[in-house]
């Protein structure tokens, strides 16, 4: 686009359209603010956390002496995996239904839209209380990773649905028409043509969802419980990293370890994001 325009050309355009110039400045300023805040925040965590990362933080068993993060780390990964396992199929299938199958102006579609938006607006503490009353008590699962994962799955469902929907909508109709024209059925078109081209969008939703899962405290406190060990099965209770951090910090006794835990949490998020972009590349190539 602007490959052939020189600086001088640009400059002349902006002289002619000072409004555009101001807008451009605003855009730049906003980007600078966003990334400055981000860098500052990350630096803050690193400065407070890195000096306290010690080998004892990675002991296999948690004790009050070492405040080990390993059990919490394992629980976080289990929790993320379980929640995604439940929410991703539901999210993608509902989005497919909304975009590919439901007829325009369908009343039911509006109901689904509205409920999804409602879900995304419900505060996590309310999810926590609901999870405790429904999964923990009414279904008798007790404080368990499973109860936590189901609660989290409901929480991230709207995120995955919305992003998948947007991604599906963005796939040009010509793709679908081409596929139909070649004699493929609707199902085949959806799974072979539409969904693969929407994968990067879906993945963006999944990444946001993972961010929410690993960062969540309020909803998990009342559902997955706060035991600082790796449970024997998914029916056992265990705390995730964020919850671990919250517990370490709440009585003010383990602040240093809490910041160190935050650093590990950050590294985990970076790792997950990197992994998902690798997967996205693999998927889009295939």
């Amino acid at each position: 686009m602007s490959n052939k325009t020189t600086m001088a050309d640009k400059f002349r355009t902006y002289l002619k359209h000072p409004g555009s110039f101001i807008v451009m400045l605003l855009v730049m300023l906003s980007a600078i603010i966003t990334f400055a805040v981000l860098i500052f925040l990350i630096a803050y965590i690193l400065v407070n956390g890195v000096p306290h990362i010690t080998p004892s933080l990675f002991s296999l068993e948690y004790t009050s002496e070492n405040a080990s993060v390993v059990p919490a780390l394992v629980n976080t990964i289990t929790m993320t995996f379980l929640s995604l396992l439940i929410a991703v199929p539901f999210g993608i299938f509902s989005a497919i239904f909304l975009v590919e199958y439901a007829s325009r102006g369908n009343k039911f579609v509006e109901v689904i839209r509205l409920t999804t938006e409602t879900l995304s607006g419900i505060p996590s503490i309310v999810y926590g209380l609901f999870g405790m009353l429904f999964f923990v008590n009414a279904l008798g699962w007790g404080f368990s990773l499973l109860a936590g994962a189901f609660t989290m799955a409901i929480m991230i469902l709207p995120l995955i649905m919305r992003t998948t929907e947007e991604a599906l909508k963005a796939v040009p109709d010509s793709y679908r028409e081409g596929s139909f024209g070649l004699g493929a059925g609707k199902l085949r078109t959806v799974f072979r043509i539409v969904l693969p081209s929407a994968i990067p969008g879906v993945l963006a939703g999944v990444i946001l969802a993972i961010g929410r899962i690993v960062g969540e405290t309020a909803a998990l406190m009342y559902t997955s419980g706060t035991v600082a060990q790796i449970p024997e099965s998914i029916m056992g209770s265990g705390r995730t990293l964020a919850l671990h951090m919250y517990n370490l910090s709440s009585e003010g006794l383990y602040m240093d370890q809490a910041y160190a835990t935050a650093v590990i949490l950050l590294i985990l998020v970076v790792g997950i994001n990197a992994l998902s972009s690798v997967i996205a590349r693999k998927l889009t190539k295939a």
């Binding site: 965590i45 960062g215 964020a242 951090m245 949490l265």
Partner: peptide, 22 residues
């Protein structure tokens, strides 16, 4: 892009302490 995604993964407790101290 990776940085904005990272921003989403920072737990709220951290934002809280950041707010409180800074």
């Amino acid at each position: 892009k990776a940085a904005t995604e990272l921003l989403a993964g920072i737990p709220s407790v951290i934002y809280g302490f950041f707010g409180l101290v800074v």
